[in-house]
Design a protein around this nucleic acid. Structure first.
Ligand SMILES: [Mn+2]
Ligand SMILES: [Mn+2]
Ligand SMILES: [Zn+2]
Ligand SMILES: [Zn+2]
Lengths: 145, 145
DNA sequence: ACTTTATTGAGAATGAATCTCAAAATCACC
DNA sequence: GGTGATTTTGAGATTCATTCTCAATAAAGT
């Protein structure tokens, strides 16, 4: 069985939650591709194969996936919360193009190490990094010249 | 005249926008304290002194203040956009306590330098940094032990 | 299979943010 | 300091992502 499914199962068990069909379908859909997604994207993707999974259930399941550590809430885009899976996807930071919306991912460790030091100095215990910047991507920068 | 007012006036001029009473009241309210704020906070604060400034006008004015560079959009908290002024307040990063909601500000330059290098490697031109982490503040960490 | 209990789908409700429009204010010009 | 073209405003309506409600359904321990 896929490793993420196993972890999910264990997580649900540990919280006394049932492993239902919708919960499984949603989790599998999340791991079908490697893009950032919002609830509506996920709903449309799932609807193609499974007619009976409601938006409400997706809205209820996504926080479980976050709590399980399989996905994390990422940027916000067009007033929608967006997510990405963390399992099988190294920590990284985001450069978002304010002109075309493109998301560029980049390294992380050096930055995280530095942030760790700053946090430690404040007695702060980090559980989730949130690192990035907005600006112009290579293409859009060129086109503006 | 306060420097920020002068900058604001120039900004509005440059965009052919009028310097109206509500726009001035809102801008002054923003600089009355140094906290992070959301539109509702601002509305309540303004209402104490000025009865006739509407929420709609605040919602319309805040993006102008952002565009002028006097304030910037910051974290999101309790599903509301929150802002802080940048003018007269050095760039910094945020540690947000997931237990009590406290916001701790910390240094910036070292981190920004590092991010600049990463962005440059991707041909990305940064216009706004977004740096921080979520976790437990000193107090909450202690109380959990 | 039975029973308890959690979960679901559908649609209603919420609430932050945006939009509409008639009335009021600004300001360039005299 | 009046006039008039043009913006801006306040109040309320509207939008739309997210959350909630509740009767019907499904999970899983026995
Ligand atoms: Mn990513
Ligand atoms: Mn701050
Ligand atoms: Zn771009
Ligand atoms: Zn705390």
């Amino acid at each position: 069985m896929k490793k993420e499914k196993e972890l999910y199962r264990k997580f649900l068990r540990s919280k006394n939650l049932k492993l239902t069909k919708p919960r499984l379908i949603i989790m599998e859909a999340v791991f079908e591709n490697h893009d950032h997604f919002n609830v509506d994207d996920l709903y449309e993707q799932i609807k193609k194969k499974h007619k009976n999974v409601s938006r409400a259930t997706i809205y209820r399941t996504v926080p479980l996936l976050v709590e399980s550590g399989l996905i994390k809430q990422s940027l916000r885009c067009e007033s929608k919360d967006i997510y990405e899976h963390t399992y099988g996807h190294e920590n990284h930071l985001h450069f978002i193009c304010i002109n075309c919306g493109k998301i560029i991912e980049s390294g992380f460790n050096e930055v995280a190490n530095l942030i760790d030091k700053l946090a430690e100095a404040k007695g702060f215990k980090i559980s989730e990094y949130n690192l990035g910047a907005r600006g112009l991507c290579k293409n859009c920068k060129k086109n503006k010249e």
